[in-house]
C-alpha cells in the first residue's frame, strides 16, 4: 500500500487513531510553545510554596522545591518528544540501512553477520540493555537518545530485511533493474516505497516505547538529569513524598501514560489501515466490496 492511501485509510476508518494524532499534536504544541503556554518558570524554586495541592494558582500543585508541576510537565513534553523523535530516528535510520543491505544480500555472509549482531542486541531485554549502555556512557540526554536508539535498531533491521526480500523478486523491480537502474536507485525508487507501511507502523510504536524508556531511565536516575524537567525524573522525586504530595506522583505519570497511549493508538490505527481485516468488520466488508467492483 502506498503512503497516501495508507493515511487516507487511516483517517477514514479509525477514530481512535485520530484521537491518538490529537494527543501527539497537543504534545507537539506544548513542547514547541512551552515558554508561552506554561504558567510559571519550570525551574523557579520557591521554598515558601512547597507541596501546594492543586489550586487555581497551581492547577497541578507544586513539588518539593515549590516548582509548578503543570509548567514542569509542559516543559517535560520537550524532553519526551525530543528523545522519542531522535532515538526513533537513530533506530529507523541505522536499522533500515542494515536491514536493506541484509535483505539485498540475503543468504550471504554479510546478511549472516548483520543479523547475528541483531540477534545479540535482541538477546537482552531492551530496557536492561539501555540501562547497561547508560551505565557505560554516563547519564545525560544525548546518551539517552543513543541508548534507546541502539536497542530499537534490530526491529527495524528485521522489518526492512523482510520487506526487501519480499519485494526484490517481484517483476516490476526486476524490470527496472533490467532497464538499467543501478541497485541503489532501484532501492530508493522501487523497493523502499513499498516497504514503507510496516516501517511507519513500527515508527509510531517505537516512539511510544522510546518515551516510556526515557521516563524509566530518568526515573532510575540514569536518564535526563535534574533540574531539567523530565516526566520520569519528576516521578522519581515524587516517590519520596507520596503521602505528603500524591499529586506530584499522579500527574507526571498521567502525562507519560497519555503520550504513550496516543502513540500506540496511532500505531494500531495505521496497522489496521494496512490490513483492513485486522480489526474492524465493517472496514473489511468495505474493502471486500471495493475489490469486487470492476476497476
Amino acid at each position: 500500500m502506498g503512503k497516501s492511501s495508507l493515511w487516507s485509510a487511516f483517517f477514514r476508518r479509525n477514530r481512535m487513531g485520530v484521537f491518538g494524532l490529537c494527543v501527539l499534536a497537543a504534545m507537539i504544541i506544548a513542547a514547541v510553545f512551552a515558554p508561552w503556554v506554561s504558567p510559571y518558570d519550570p525551574l523557579k524554586i520557591n521554598m515558601l510554596h512547597r507541596f501546594l495541592p492543586p489550586s487555581l494558582h497551581h492547577p497541578l500543585g507544586t513539588d518539593d522545591l515549590g516548582r509548578d508541576v503543570l509548567s514542569r510537565i509542559i516543559f517535560g513534553a520537550r524532553v519526551s518528544l525530543e528523545v522519542g523523535i531522535i532515538s526513533t530516528g537513530i533506530a529507523t535510520g541505522v536499522g533500515v540501512f542494515f536491514g536493506v543491505i541484509a535483505g539485498y544480500k540475503s543468504g550471504s555472509a554479510t546478511d549472516n553477520i548483520i543479523m547475528r549482531i541483531m540477534d545479540v542486541l535482541l538477546a537482552f531485554p531492551a530496557i536492561l540493555l539501555a540501562i547497561a549502555i547508560m551505565a557505560t556512557l554516563g547519564a545525560n540526554m544525548g546518551n539517552v537518545m543513543i541508548a534507546i536508539g541502539i536497542v530499537n535498531i534490530p526491529v527495524f533491521a528485521r522489518i526492512a530485511r523482510a520487506a526487501v526480500i519480499q519485494v526484490v523478486p517481484l517483476e516490476y523491480v526486476e524490470a527496472s533493474r533490467a532497464s538499467g537502474a543501478s541497485w541503489p536507485r532501484s532501492l530508493m525508487r522501487d523497493v523502499l516505497p513499498n516497504s514503507l507501511g510496516p516501517i511507519i507502523v513500527q515508527v509510531s510504536l517505537t516512539m511510544a516505547s522510546a518515551i516510556l524508556a526515557e521516563a524509566a531511565l530518568s526515573f532510575l536516575g540514569l536518564g535526563v538529569q535534574p533540574p531539567t524537567p523530565s516526566w520520569g525524573s519528576m516521578l522519581s522525586s515524587a516517590q519520596n513524598y507520596l503521602t505528603l504530595a500524591p499529586w506530584d506522583a499522579v500527574f507526571p505519570g498521567l502525562a507519560i501514560f497519555v503520550a504513550v497511549f496516543g502513540l500506540n493508538l496511532i500505531g494500531d490505527g495505521l496497522r489496521d489501515a494496512l490490513d483492513p481485516r485486522a480489526r474492524n468488520p465493517r472496514a473489511a466488508m468495505r474493502a471486500a466490496e471495493r475489490k469486487s467492483q470492476p476497476a
Binding site: 516521578l235 501514560f257 504513550v260 500506540n264
Partner: peptide
C-alpha cells in the same frame, strides 16, 4: 489491553502503593 500496554509500570506501582498501602 491498550491501557495495560501503555501504562508505565513504575507509575502504576506508585499509584498502587498510594491506594493499597498508604
Amino acid at each position: 489491553a491498550l491501557f495495560g500496554i501503555s501504562i508505565p509500570g513504575f507509575w502504576l506501582g506508585l499509584l498502587l502503593i498510594l491506594l493499597f498501602s498508604l
